[in-house]
């Protein structure tokens, strides 16, 4: 791709829209994952007793539920990104690609 073409795409408002929307989404999801995981690790580091407390009458602890929640969250966030990318971002990128070929 030559620089003139790149500059033309870079100046396209749809491109700027794509970069801005995807960027916002990307960093938001990254922040959610980071906070959830580091929160989990810090809870373990600072309050082991809390994590060991049973959630109900049985033995299953808050820590086990929290751990599984982090695993499920990781998979769910991944799924959300893939869905949104296919629905919102791909058509924009596709339009920009097609125009460049034409």
């Amino acid at each position: 791709m030559d620089d003139a073409r790149a500059a033309r795409v870079a100046a396209d408002p749809r491109y700027r829209e794509l970069v801005r929307r995807r960027g916002r989404f990307t960093w938001a999801l990254t922040a959610v994952m980071l906070v959830a995981y580091l929160g989990f690790i810090l809870l373990i580091a600072f309050d082991k007793a809390f994590m060991a407390r049973p959630i109900g009458a049985g033995v299953t602890s808050i820590g086990i539920v929290a751990g599984f929640a982090v695993i499920v969250l990781a998979i769910v966030l991944t799924g959300i990104y893939v869905r949104r990318a296919a629905r919102d971002f791909d058509p924009l990128a596709e339009a920009l690609r097609r125009e460049r070929d034409a």
Binding site: T30, M33, Y37, I71, Y81, V82
Partner: peptide, 24 residues
């Protein structure tokens, strides 16, 4: 018991990050 789970989770949470920032 529980400590093994801490490992597992650490190995998993890198993947969403790879997807959001890197893969495409």
């Amino acid at each position: 018991g529980y400590d093994g789970l801490i490992y597992s989770i650490g190995f998993l949470v890198g993947w969403p990050i790879i997807l959001f920032l890197m893969a495409e």
